[in-house]
Design a protein around this nucleic acid. Structure first.
Lengths: 222, 222, 222, 222
DNA sequence: GATGAATGAGGCTTCATTCAT
DNA sequence: TATGAATGAAGCCTCATTCAT
């Protein structure tokens, strides 16, 4: 009935993007419950109802905020890894790209960690399966890389899934400490440490250890 | 009027403990905002007003829940470390004790990670300074241990604070992945891997690497 | 500018008629408050603004829906009565035509009963006086007929206004029961009953009764 | 834990009764959607939250308003009928008691007719089944009475269910016309007329009629 | 005239907290 | 001290209506 209006559609997309950005900042600052739809609407310079015309409800807006960024993160990280020449380079790119992305999206990082990483026990997982799968695809890519590395004799013969999860957690962990520390020194240092620890460990090299002896003794404590 | 203090006081402490336990479970399941004071009072089999006679308000109750557990965690971990014979054993005890505590307090873990680890940008940090300091004291103990290890030539000469933070975060992150994965296999494996990676890294040992060469090439990307 | 009036005007009338039909169905299904202008616009395949270009506002549209149908009802019933040869035939045509109309317009019937018949106590009578008068004109026609019947010795010497209202109510009442009962048997039966009861009553004929004796005794109850 | 507090319970019941009365008046005046919970709370001199502590939500309050009155109506009418000596007296009591109740509860009448009598097509029948059944029990009592009357040769051999429904609807419909007419003259007249019409009809007695002859002619019209 | 995005008033409901008993 | 009824602020969301294109 109406002609295909590319301008309308373009504006619509711009508005959505704009609201998402505003919402990201506010959600990150106040958390899901602390943020109010009115605040978001005001900051976005739209009427309350307008925000609702773009997003079904608060939860829908919130999910879209996370989803948009997670997709971005995963696409960037996966893309960079794919184009790396060697297993080692792929792993390094994973570390570097992921953490750089976090650093550039601290507001998102907060949301990501609060809600992607800390699932509620309840059924009502705020984040939809779809998103979780997207994220898992990134970890799977890393797993594949590590598996390849094991076959090439680069990595120790450990469970590649656990190893991938460990590296993923390690990068999350470091990003977390950025969040906590007011003073964020040059990121290069942290990157170097993660990489060094993951590849070579913190200890000075020495003969293989039986360092679990003493742990066994602790088994029977609360 | 103060005659009966001993019994009264004893009961009071029991009630507080009871409410804290109930509150922990509910907060963990529903989150701070999802939980209601009425639910907690009901489950604790006290009147609403009674809960308020023990805790100033919801936030106060919440903080006390976290504080109690964090104190416990820190005391247990620090205590175990202190009684360990060597630097290496101390670090291993840190890993083992902390993660065992988490595993035994999954409900708490959720709260801890959501609110201790992911601070809000806003002033209204839900957790009080006092608690943060308590927690930091544990990390400081680990820092001291690592520093000692560096002096003893056990650890590489890296910033001990960063290294400690890394290990602390790494254990947090690994605990997180437990939370996520439904199937929690024998924890021993994960512990072994974390320990192995932290000490010796994932890579098969070889000559010291200049593995940052290729990362430099990535510097100009988003 | 007025050149195209005929076609324009014709289209305009068609659109109005179309929207009225759609609105009738939706109002009947959801009630005045349950229906939304957007729903109506969507189902009518017009833009929201277009509906507003035809009707001042929601209330205006609603009134027009009712008005159109009530006018139709009154005109059909009155017309049929006028062309009937005798008082008795006129009354029978009233019953028959009105109830047939209802049966053929169940959606409207719902609206009619909900809002025409159940006026709000408040000033904000949804229906305008105009419409009420139109309806009353139908009842007045019936009153006249009955009055004539009384003069002709066909009807008992009762207040013709009350008698007319009673018959009008009786037909409404039966229509109501159609609305309630899922299974609507052959309408003929119901028509027969209304007619029979109105003319001859439910009782087997016998001598005039003093059946109010016992009712007098109930006068002093709540 | 607390002693069985009869006073609390008594107050509670009083408050509920009070709110129900206030709500009845406001719902009757403004309709379900026109009324607001705040209005009701204000008029009842309770805080908004207090109303919600007595009734789950608006719909719950509304239903309770109707339910309370319908129960009263049915109990009064059924009670009166039961104590009447003859079939005729029972029917007269039905008419008299029901209509007197309506007259004394005009506010309720409006609600009753709007929602009991005019069900929405949609699933979301506002009134619960329970209530509908209660009401039906009254109509069934009337049906039984009429059935008995038919066996005793007092009523014509018509379908007693239809006859009961007709009388029930007739009284509803007559009550409606009271609502409409500003001037409510002595109710006795209307009662007398309804009773007379129902029992004996409006027509002067004469031989049985074949008054459907002319209706047949109308069969082919819309 | 037709469109539908934008508006914002206003309703329902929840729940932390208080306080009289 | 324990109780839980009462309070009311505050948030989410809907939807009639307007108006620029």
């Amino acid at each position: 009935m109406a002609k295909f209006t590319p301008r309308r559609e373009r504006e619509r997309q711009e508005h959505i993007r704009h609201i998402l950005n505003v919402a990201e900042a506010i959600f990150a600052r106040k958390g899901f419950f602390g943020a109010t739809m009115r605040q978001i609407a005001l900051k976005a310079e739209f009427a309350l109802g307008t925000v609702y015309s773009y997003f079904r409800d608060k939860k829908g807006l919130y999910e879209k905020v996370i989803e948009t960024k997670v997709n971005e993160l995963v696409d960037v990280v996966t893309g960079e890894m794919t184009s790396a020449p060697s297993v080692r380079a792929q792993v390094e790119r994973f570390i570097y790209t992921k953490m750089t992305f976090f650093l550039e999206n601290l507001a998102f990082l907060r949301l990501y960690l609060a809600d992607v990483d800390v699932p509620r026990l309840d059924a009502e997982h705020i984040l939809p399966k779809k998103l979780r799968e997207k994220y898992n695809s990134m970890v799977r890519t890393l797993t594949d890389t590590i598996e390849q590395g094991i076959r090439q004799g680069i990595f120790k013969s450990m469970n590649p899934k656990v190893l991938a999860r460990t590296l993923d957690s390690l990068t999350n962990a470091l990003a977390l400490s950025w969040l906590r520390s007011q003073e964020r020194g040059p990121i290069e240092n942290d990157l170097r440490i993660v990489t060094e620890v993951f590849f070579n460990g913190a200890a000075i090299h020495q003969k293989p250890t039986q360092h679990y002896d003493n742990i066994k003794e602790l088994d029977n404590e609360s």
